[in-house]
Design a protein around this nucleic acid. Structure first.
Ligand SMILES: [Zn+2]
Ligand SMILES: [Zn+2]
Ligand SMILES: [Zn+2]
Ligand SMILES: [Zn+2]
Lengths: 161, 161
DNA sequence: CCCCAAATTGATATGTTATAACATTCAATC
DNA sequence: GATTGAATGTTATAACATATCAATTTGGGG
């Protein structure tokens, strides 16, 4: 499903199954899935939208989980490090991974209007950049592949655009 | 030349010819290539490295071209709008376009150590993202394609990494 | 030539995103 | 029950970007 996020799906189970896989991953790798980290992932999972660190912080703070920026950034560091979340560089915002556990090089379709994000697994996409890289001895550590645009729902809302 | 920036080349003419093309473009499109804008492009062209807006501002300010952040951001807005420069989202930094006038969808190889950037013209890269987009009715307005890693020069300097 | 409108610049303040630094708590290990 | 490393709490600040409004320039009509 390359475009989860733009289609209807069983979102409750989408959340719960991802959380389960995250828990399992933490057990397997001796990572501590602490309350702040878990809650942060839950919040991200609740939407297929990118949220800013300070948006997250506001929600965490309402729940008494911390008020200072490092709270949010530490949780996001953990989640992105573990592969549970990704940063959308084009928005300076964060989103839960839609392919948790699949060891992937993600690519994103990002709606600049509603911030909905679809995560496509295009590991093969590395190919073209990879060719240029290999030709010069450049060692790729991470790829940022994002298409910014207007999602189907927003196109319908304002087709004139 | 997909990897300009990692190879030796006639940099003086690389700068001057690009400036000429920029001037011509401005004349043709009735854009004002004011001193600040021109000098900002010159500074960016002098390196095949990404520079932060405040790095640029510091240099402009030394030359009496303005001291407040909007000076740099206005110049960068103009240059990116005209296609003379690109923003590297993964670094929050800016670089002169290496394919000025070619109407391209750029992709970058970004060295996270020395900030050298090679601009590859991979318009075809849109293809794969484009497929996923077309399949769902997503309208791409802009693509962000960046490979972060270590450039050949930096690899040699610290091969152990 | 003078006036107007639009674009550009100057200047101040503020908003937004992210990290440094250091003290404290906590839980596992020895 | 001391040691130790990870996680948190807290304060402050760094780094990136924009809003706003006044002043100036510039290029056409009148
Ligand atoms: Zn993912
Ligand atoms: Zn949308
Ligand atoms: Zn370019
Ligand atoms: Zn390098």
């Amino acid at each position: 499903m390359p475009t989860l996020g733009f289609h209807k799906h069983d979102h409750a189970s989408c959340i719960s199954s991802t959380l389960e896989r995250a828990e399992a991953h933490c057990v397997a790798h001796n990572l501590k899935f602490t309350p702040v980290r878990k809650r942060t992932l839950e919040i991200l999972l609740a939407e297929h939208r990118a949220l800013g660190a300070y948006d997250l912080l506001a929600m965490l703070s309402e729940e008494g989980l911390g008020t200072a920026p490092p709270v949010a950034y530490r949780a996001l560091d953990f989640l992105t490090g573990a592969g549970f979340a990704h940063k959308i560089e084009g928005l300076n915002a964060y989103i839960a991974c839609a392919h948790l556990g699949e060891d992937h090089a993600p690519a994103f379709l990002v709606c600049t209007r509603c911030k909905t994000v679809a995560e496509a697994d295009t590991a093969a996409d590395k190919g073209r950049l990879g060719q240029a890289a290999a030709a010069t001895g450049f060692q790729i550590e991470k790829t940022v592949i994002e298409a910014m645009g207007i999602c189907p729902a927003c196109v319908e809302d304002a087709p004139c655009a």
